[in-house]
Nucleic acid binder design. Sequence first.
DNA 1: ATAGAAAACAAGCGCCCGTTTGTTTTTATA
DNA 2: TATAAAAACAAACGGGCGCTTGTTTTCTAT
Lengths: 210, 210
Amino acid sequence: MGKVKRKEEILTTACHLFSQKGYHGTTMRDISEACGILAGSLYTHIRSKEDLLYEITDRGAQSFLQSLQQVVNSEKSAAEKLRLALRAHIQVVAENIEAATVFFHEWKALTGERRKQIQKKRDQYELMWKQILLEGIQSGELHDLDGKFARLLLLSVGNWLYQWYKPDGKLSVDEIVDRFMTILLYGFLGQKEGIHFESGRNVYETDQTG
Amino acid sequence: MGKVKRKEEILTTACHLFSQKGYHGTTMRDISEACGILAGSLYTHIRSKEDLLYEITDRGAQSFLQSLQQVVNSEKSAAEKLRLALRAHIQVVAENIEAATVFFHEWKALTGERRKQIQKKRDQYELMWKQILLEGIQSGELHDLDGKFARLLLLSVGNWLYQWYKPDGKLSVDEIVDRFMTILLYGFLGQKEGIHFESGRNVYETDQTG
DNA sequence: ATAGAAAACAAGCGCCCGTTTGTTTTTATA
DNA sequence: TATAAAAACAAACGGGCGCTTGTTTTCTAT
């Protein structure tokens, strides 16, 4: 097995096991067995168990930050920016479902400086959402909106996704985003005027949950 | 220390530590030290560590089920039922924030039959939400609504609450529910006609998160 | 083909885990 | 106040934990 490859294999394997059994519920022997080597051999490639967790969560944080940065920099209407932001978020989760699970579920198992760094990136991310919403409110496009709770709503939806999303589900990321955004923009009671989806029928069951 | 009291103290302490450090990250010695007794003495009151986790999560599940059952049985409009359901959910989380944290974050650490039982109650709970939304859609009150995603939205908001809610926050449960429901019923773009709150001003910062 | 580097092995370190056992102390009841 | 039950202690069990060390095997580049 090549040099860099084994390191990545260990990370992927750890990510898989952490997402399934949790960080503290996964042992180095679990990881080594899944990789087909002995536990001690892992330490040729990594320095510690916590290093694995940090690498996984930090990569996750970077993915979220980078994808949202593009949205913030874009020049679109507030509503469109919100859609793009939610789309970016959901895409990161959907395309890295195991890493996202570890990111959301296990990052607090980090200790000391490492944890602070991840916390910092989470704060940065939240700040970017704040910015998008604040712009929309100040420009009047999102009149009368409680920015704080709008943000909590959006992040709740995006962050909870890892709990139910299954990669082999019937709906694409775009279809999921469309359904959420329709409700978020116009509400349970509002009309969906001016919005059209290629698959916009109202079907109660479109099962994607596990 | 009395008979039943010590058992409850152990449960409360375990709940606190599980919510902070996770189930696998908490040791029996952690719990015993916080209770001021030796680790072995715990076993006068409990049978195993997993028993503690099961008791906590099962009580949580019962709280959610009971509070929502009352809403399902009530005779209200669909929109009002949704509000009451979200209120019930948020109230359970807010009034038992540590237990809720363990319930949402650690229930998968249960094994075998115990885990299946909690899963079953979670399914029951979701079914009750489905029922409320289905009634509202079939009666026409929630016209054109994608019930599946409306439910995901509501449960995302309710389930993510444990991640940011602080008991010493400035807003009451009712105020939180009002803010979420306003957005959920009328959307980011819609008018909030016919709705009035005693504290309905639009302030961007109403900090409640940690 | 062979020297040097990288990777994996084999063994085990010290420590902590959940739990058990046998004894002592505390509590409740008569 | 005597007595039995309940609770807590003291000590340790078997085992698994993250990780290290010293050696052997495998790969890579000349």
